[in-house]
Design a protein around this nucleic acid. Structure first.
Length: 675
DNA sequence: GATAGAGTAAACACGG
DNA sequence: GCCGTGTTTACTCTAT
């Protein structure tokens, strides 16, 4: 008991508190460290972006307070607050906005990014709003700083003439210095954020590419620009989406302060104004002015205004707009530069989106762990679930809802295709499961998300959609000696699956029950106790029933051959069939997994043989696995002296009577390397 | 609806 | 007696 509890505590500490232990998350940990290094009591997934945001908020607050103090002081001193001078030279703003801008990327890179565009309009909308808020804050800060400088100069002039109030002057200067430091800190945090994104691969700058110069994004990234970008992007999405169910057009003028749209009747499609989140996009548009229709015909024209970044020239009609476009925005250096700036905008949004997607996943994972609320119809999350769940979800009766389908909805791939359908409900897979993944393995596991599933199950308290037998078998096969004690199996469960860090009595009982129940698990007596091995032939005997009982499975397996290489398809099917969720052919490069892969391959041969022989003969003797894993009679644990079988698992076990290495493995699991 | 597979709970036995 | 391990049974649920 002591050992068990200690192990669980250890597992929880490493997997949950750290969030992740795998290589995929090392970079994120790096950013986390950066955030913590700044003295922030970062808990959980607080990253550099959050810190930057907090810093921005703090800076804004400080700025407002300073402004108020300044005004109060001026009122006391009788000074009149100078009006904002727009002609104030930008040189007086020592804080370069360029520091906040990402690196310039080439059009090829931008095109690449856009081709990889998997954003939904909703995601982009959120990003745009965030981006707007950010830009607004920056503009406010800059304006405030300008005012501060003006006031300081005025005060200096007056005090030079009057020769008094040096103390107040010093105070103002101190405040400005503090504010400037805030700004600098904010920019540094933003840069750290960008760097962390870059390290995480979210920002892909080709290594061969020389360091690109920083170009000032300036204030050309005004909300109208973002709006135009939004229209451009959404127009692409609109072409793809057919249902229009969850469309919500975005009008950034709702949050735009400096919107220059001349028409008060400009179309405002505020998604928040909708009652149920589903908007009738077209109805109000038809009521809008005629130039609205033109705005749809050209992404650079809307609200009677040229939407070229930084232009906003008023064009009465579409013809004049076209004329203006050809004359003012022809192919020249200026237009090229502006286009480049626009690329930066897009890139910024991409970065922000990537970060937010990551954050969303962490949030969902976190909420999943905490939440126990009943679940709605789950949404498919990946290739596997999209097929396997389609039926079960549609047929799920309200009664069956509490029994969450832990079919492969659980693994969530960060990279989703198209409009994300990730829902929190799909994460709520805590609880008893009745559905089995083993019956649905006609769908090949997507190799792209498997590498992440391991981390997912490690950290998220999601029940793995695999049977106990499959998990036990995998635990045993993963062990170096292909044998594990019961306690080691326990440890494997808790180590690999966060779900099994709770309700130990229940699932441990189930493990024991399965070990005893299934003939495929062979108990081997040893001097120091007993270990469990897997009788692959017996394990295979369970499968042909499923395969033969599902003709469509055979058909699917055959069809999969048409699309993949036979080995890959069969291997994937076998992996799915054998409930090996965490590895794919992509991960076979791992030497530790190589044995497993070969075992699976051999298993697959047996399975395919079963299938091809039309289940006429399931004789274990024909299975190639027998040469590797001979059958052991469960009720007759082999005596170590009698174990002379060919390459027997038992032989391996018996030839190593000293099980100290098992203890070592238990304490410092070797398989941690591939986690 | 019958059936099989799987999960859960529980009781019991055995040995350290 | 306690605890871990192992076995067995019963029941429920789900998918076929």
């Amino acid at each position: 008991m002591m050992q068990e509890s200690g192990t669980e505590t250890k597992s929880n500490g490493s997997a949950i508190q750290n969030g992740s232990s795998g290589g995929n998350h090392l970079l994120e940990c790096g950013s986390l460290r950066e955030g913590r290094s700044n003295g922030e009591a970062a808990a959980g997934d607080v990253g550099a972006a959050d810190l930057a945001h907090v810093q921005q908020q703090q800076a804004l607050q400080v700025a407002r307070q300073l402004l108020l103090q300044q005004q109060q002081q001026q009122q006391v001193s009788g000074l009149k607050s100078p009006k904002r001078n727009d002609k104030q030279p930008a040189l007086q703003v020592p804080v370069s906005v360029a520091m906040m801008t990402p690196q310039v990327i080439t059009p090829q890179q931008m095109q690449q990014i856009l081709q990889q565009q998997v954003l939904s309009p909703q995601q982009l909308q959120v990003l745009l709003q965030q981006q707007q808020a950010l830009m607004l804050q920056q503009q406010q800060l800059q304006e405030f700083y300008k005012k501060q400088q003006e006031q300081l100069q005025l005060q200096l002039l007056q005090q030079q003439h009057a020769g008094k109030q040096p103390k107040e002057q010093q105070q103002v200067a101190t405040q400005q210095l503090a504010f400037q430091q805030q700004l600098l800190q904010m920019q540094q945090l933003q840069q750290q954020h960008l760097l962390s994104l870059q390290r995480q691969g979210l920002l892909t700058i080709q290594p061969g590419q020389p360091a690109l110069p920083l170009q000032p994004l300036a204030q050309g990234m005004i909300p109208t620009e973002l709006q135009q970008l939004w229209k451009e992007v959404t127009s692409a999405h609109t072409a793809e989406e057919t249902t229009g169910n969850n469309h919500s057009s975005l009008d950034l003028t709702t949050t735009c302060v400096s919107s220059s749209a001349p028409s008060k009747t400009s179309l405002i499609m505020n998604p928040h104004a909708s009652t149920n989140g589903q908007l009738s996009v077209h109805t109000p548009k038809r009521e809008s002015l005629s130039h609205e229709e033109h705005s749809h015909s050209h992404p650079l024209y809307g609200h009677g205004v040229c939407k070229w970044p930084g232009c906003e020239a008023v064009c009465e009609d579409f013809q004049s707009f076209l004329k203006h476009l050809n004359s003012e925005h022809a192919l020249d250096d200026r237009s090229t530069a502006q286009c480049r700036v626009q690329m930066q905008v897009v890139q910024q949004l991409e970065l922000q989106l990537a970060k937010d997607k990551e954050r969303l996943q962490a949030m969902m994972t976190h909420l999943h762990v905490k939440s126990t609320e009943p679940k709605a119809a789950p949404q498919p999350l990946n290739l596997v679930s999209s097929v396997t769940l389609s039926k079960s979800a549609s047929e799920a009766s309200p009664q069956s809802l509490p029994h969450t389908p832990t079919t492969p909805t659980a693994p969530i791939t960060p990279v989703t295709q198209g409009p994300s359908v990730i829902t929190t409900t799909s994460m709520h897979t805590v609880g008893p499961i009745r559905r089995r993944y083993s019956d649905k393995y006609n769908v090949p596991i997507s190799s792209a998300d498997i590498a992440q599933n391991q981390e997912f199950y490690k950290n998220a308290e999601v029940r793995p959609p695999f049977t106990y037998a499959s998990l036990i078998r995998q635990a045993i096969l993963e062990s170096p000696e292909k044998q594990l004690t019961l306690n080691e199996i326990y440890n494997w469960f808790t180590r690999m699956f966060a779900y099994f860090r709770r309700n130990a009595a229940t699932w441990k009982n189930a493990v024991r029950h399965n070990l005893s129940l299934h003939k495929c698990f062979v108990r081997v007596e040893n001097v120091k106790g007993a270990v469990w091995t897997v009788d692959e032939v017996e394990f295979q005997k369970r499968r042909p029933q499923k395969i033969s009982g599902n003709p469509s499975l055979i058909k699917n397996m055959q069809s999969s051959h048409a699309y993949c290489t036979p080995l890959n398809a069969a291997l994937q099917a076998s992996m799915a069939e054998n409930s090996i969720p965490l590895y794919t052919t992509a991960s076979m490069g791992n030497p530790t997994l190589g044995n497993l892969a070969s075992a699976i391959r051999e298993e697959l041969n047996g399975a395919m043989e079963h299938t091809n022989s039309n289940e006429s003969d399931s004789s274990p003797g024909r299975s190639p696995m027998q040469a590797v894993h001979p059958v052991h009679v469960k009720e007759e644990p082999l005596d170590p002296e009698e174990a002379e079988g060919p390459l027997s698992l038992v032989t391996t076990a018996n030839h190593s009577p000293d099980f100290d290495h098992d203890r070592d493995y238990e304490d410092e699991p070797v398989n941690e390397d591939m986690e």
